[in-house]
Design a protein around this nucleic acid. Sequence first.
DNA 1: CCTCAGGGCTCTC
DNA 2: GAGAGCCCTGAG
Length: 291
Amino acid sequence: MYRFEEYAEGIVIKNTADFNIKHIFDCGQCFRWNEQEDGSYVGVAYGRAVRIIQSDNDIYIKGGKIEDKELWEYYFDLKRDYGYIKSELSRDEILKEAIKHGEGIRILNQDMFEIVVSFIISANNRIPMIKRAVENISRRYGKEIEFEGKIYYSFPTPDRLIRADIKELEECGVGFRAPYIVDTVSKIYKGEVDLSNIKEFDTDEAFKELTKLKGIGPKVADCILLFSMQKYDAFPVDVWVKRVMQHFYLAPDVSLNKIRQFGRDKFKFYAGFAQQYLFYYAREFKGKDAF
DNA sequence: CCTCAGGGCTCTC
DNA sequence: GAGAGCCCTGAG
């Protein structure tokens, strides 16, 4: 069982299980963590700038405060037994292999508003570009946070991002998605859309509500559900998951919606976890001519 | 159900 | 240097 302790420069989570910071931060669920030369990750979550350092099963949160213990416990989804989920999913031979590659993946509990905007930007985009745009938006509309002598920025809240117009967002590098962001942020700001309320719906109802918003199609909605609303039966199908699914399970011409349904039916309430292992697996093979 | 355009950047040729 | 493709969506 893990436990939190304080140390000179922050807090440490001792004795974690199924926890690998590289797997967690590189499995496509987050855009604000950057790997450093020493293998640690620096990033901002819920307005806190910290450095995450892994030493075997101990996770150091440099700059972390002990009063935020519950916040980090929630963020890293520590209460969930990933060992059990993996053993269930390993009954499928392909998942068993995929899990070997990303055995330390955990699904982060991220801020809903940040995830909505970040994944609108993700549409037909590349990860470095998404990261850059999210960073630019944070720098322009977020709050300053000082850490290790540098200035970092929190992702803006709706009442701050509402000030952004299409032109400014384009300058941040979001491209043709700028009007979608303006529209969706305004609906959230005005209360026409209440993300906390949508979170209480079941997965299908929440999916319907989210896809009503500009810039949110099936794939982006599934990402929002999985990465910020704890809907673990969601199965986001991006190009990578599409490739693995068509290679291992389905015919090459099966539609995205069919793949989504297949994944949800096959993996049930673990579909979202399966998707993460498959995504990480697929990207490991990038350029290796596997698919 | 279908097709297609849509920042801008990077990889490929 | 052109062309394809990108964690895809909206419009037709």
